[in-house]
Amino acid sequence: MSDAGPLMEVSALERSFTLGEEEVRALRGVSFTIERGEYVALIGPSGSGKSTMMYQLGCLDTPSRGTYRLAGYDVGQLDDDELAALRNRFIGFVFQSFNLLARTTAVDNVALPLRYAGVGMRERRERAREALDRVGLGHRWDHPPDRLSGGERQRVAIARAIVTKPALLLCDEPTGNLDQKVGQEIVRLFEELNSDLKVTVVIVTHDPAMARRARRNLKLVDGSLVHDGPPLEGH
C-alpha cells in the first residue's frame, strides 16, 4: 500500500449475477477515482446498482470484470481472509437498518471490529467508549439497541464504523430509516468526521438535499456511471 496514490481506483468495473438462465448486469463498466479525504454521494434510481457498488467498494464482493484498487491493493486478487483483513483495517460500514447486535450493549457493539483486529478486551472497551463520545453517545454506553432511539442506534453504528480509525466510511442510505431532523444531524456528523478525522466518506442516498451537501456526486443509472462531478441542479 502506498499513501501516495488515490485511496480508491475503480476501472471498467463490471458485476453481473446469474439468476437461473438470465444474466443480470448490475454494474456495466464503471470507472472513477476517489482521493483521500473526499466526501462523495452515490446517487441513482432504485435498482441502478448503488448497493452493488457499495459492496464492491467495501471489499465484501469482488468484480466480475475490471479492477478495483483500495489503498493500492488489487481487491480482485485477494483471498477471503485478506478481504476480511482489508475490511477490518480500512473500512467502516453504516447501513440503513443499523445492523447492531441485539442484546449487546452499545459499547460492545462498537468494540466488535476491534475484536477481529485482535485488540485486547480492555483496550477495546476504552476505544469503543472514545468512539461513542465522538458521536455524542458516551452516556448511553451500556444501553442495548432496543433501549435506544433510531437516531441513537445509527450513532452507535457510526461509532462502530469509526472505532478502527478507518480510511473509508461507506454508508448505504444511512438516513433512510430516520425522520428528517434526525437524518440531518446524522449527515452533519458525517461531515464533521470527514473534516475532523480526514476520513473519506461515500454515502449512498436518495435524498437530493443530502446529495447536494456533498462536494462530489456519482450517479448510476442501469449500472452505468452517467455523472461524476459537482451536485446536479434540479435533481
Binding site: 465484501l60 477471503d80 481472509d81 476480511a84 475490511r87 483495517r89 445492523n99 477481529y116 478502527t164
Partner: peptide
C-alpha cells in the same frame, strides 16, 4: 444471518 453479515463486514474471517 444478518449478524453473520455484519461480523463479516467488520472483519470477521470465515474461521472466526
Amino acid at each position: 444471518t444478518r449478524e453473520i453479515g455484519v461480523r463479516r463486514a467488520v472483519g470477521a474471517t470465515q474461521r472466526d
